[in-house]
Amino acid sequence: MKRNDTPVYYGDYLQLDKILGAQAFQSEKYGEPAHDEMLFIIVHQVYELWFKQVLHELNAIIDTFSQERMPDDELIGVVHRLHRIIQIQQLMNDQISVMETMTPQQFLSFRDYLVPASGFQSIQFKRLEISLGLKREYRIDFDKQSFFNRLTDKDRELLEALENKSSLFELVDEWLARMPLLEKDEFAFWQHYKSAADDLLASDKQTITENETLSDKEKAQELKDWQGTRENFDALFDKEKYEALRQDGVFRLSHEAMLATLFIKQYPEEPIFNVPFQLITALTEIDEKLTIWRYRHAMMVQRMLGTKIGTGGSSGHHYLKKTTESNRIFVDFFNTATFLLPKDMLPPLPEQVKHYFGFHYS
C-alpha cells in the first residue's frame, strides 16, 4: 500500500466545516431560536449518515446476489456486512433515548415551524426499505397513497426506478429456491418430515382436547388455531395450496425457498448449511431491529404529540404503530419456527448424506 504524498488534516478530511455548519434553526426565522431544535436536527442528521452507511453495505450485498452465479465463498462477506448493519441498527435504536430527553413542550417550541416536512421525505430511508424488499404493494394503505405524493419529481423518479429493480428479499428468495433439496440415495427427507409433523400435530390436538382448564369457547378457539396451523403444514407438501395461501398473504417466500429455508434451519450444524443459516438469522435480526425502531419511534411520537397529527399530515402515533407490524419484510423467516421439529423427531442423516453435506478430503 502506498503512502500519501501530501499531509492530511483531520478537519479537512472529514469536511467538518460542512458537517458542523449544517445546523440551521428554523425557529430562528420567527424569533428566538429554540434551544432543543439543535438536538432535533443533529439526531436526524446522524440518522441520515447511518442510513448512508447501511445503503453502502446493502448495495454491495445486492450486487453479490445479483451475479449470474452466486459464489459460495462470497457468502461469508455478505454475512459480515449484514452483521455490520445490525450493529448500526442497534445504535439507531439507542439514539431514540437521546431524543426522548426532550420534553413535549420543548418540542412544541419549534414543531409547527417544520410543517409540512416529514420523515416520509427521507429518501435514504425509503431507498433502504425498498432495497430490503418493502415495495409499494406491501405497504399499508396510507403509506401506499402518500408514498410518492410528498416528494420532488427527482426523488420520485429515483424511487420509482428502484421499485423496478430486484430487492434483497427477491434475490435471496431466488437463491434459496436454487438450493438442492434432499432426495438422495433413496433417503427422502420430506417423507420422514411429514410423518413426524403429523405425529406432532396429533399430539398438539390431543393436548387441547384433554385440557380441562379450557372453557368450551377457549377450546374451540384453540382448535380453530390448530386447524390453521394444520393447513399451513399441509401446504408445505402441496404447491397449489401453498400458492393459494401465498396469494392471501400468509406466506411471501416462494414454495421452493420456504422448503430450503426450513431444511437449513432443521440442520444448521451441517457444514454446507452453516453460513446460509447465519445469513437467514442475520436477515431475521435486521427485520427485528427495524420493527423495534418503528415501535420505539411510534412510542416517542406518542410521548411528544399524544394523538396530534404528524407534521407531514399523517395520523402520527396511530400511523407509526400500524407500520410496526404491517411493514415487515422477512417475517417468513420468523414463522418457519412453526414448522421446526425437535431434534429427536428428525430422521438421522445417513452417513453417505452427512458425507455429501460435510467437508471431506481424500
Rank of each mutant, 00 (worst) to 15 (best):
D5P: 00
Y9D: 00
G11A: 10
A24D: 05
F25H: 10
Q26L: 04
E28K: 10
K29Q: 08
Y30M: 06
A34L: 10
H35F: 14
D36F: 14
L49M: 11
W50E: 06
Q53W: 09
P71H: 07
L75I: 11
I76L: 04
H80K: 08
R84M: 11
M92G: 07
Q95T: 11
T103P: 10
Q105M: 07
Y113T: 14
F120E: 02
S122M: 03
F125G: 01
G133R: 01
L134T: 04
K144Q: 15
N149S: 15
R150Q: 15
L151E: 10
D153A: 15
L159F: 09
L162G: 09
E163M: 15
E170Q: 12
D173N: 14
A177E: 06
A188T: 00
W190Q: 00
K194A: 07
L214W: 09
L214H: 07
A220E: 05
E222C: 14
Q227H: 12
G228Q: 05
L236M: 05
K239T: 05
E240R: 06
D248F: 03
D248A: 10
R252T: 02
V275C: 09
A282M: 10
I286W: 07
D287S: 04
M300D: 01
G306P: 14
I309K: 12
G310Q: 08
S314I: 03
H317M: 11
Y319D: 05
K322Y: 02
F333W: 12
L341V: 10
E351V: 15
F357Y: 15
H360L: 11
Y361T: 14
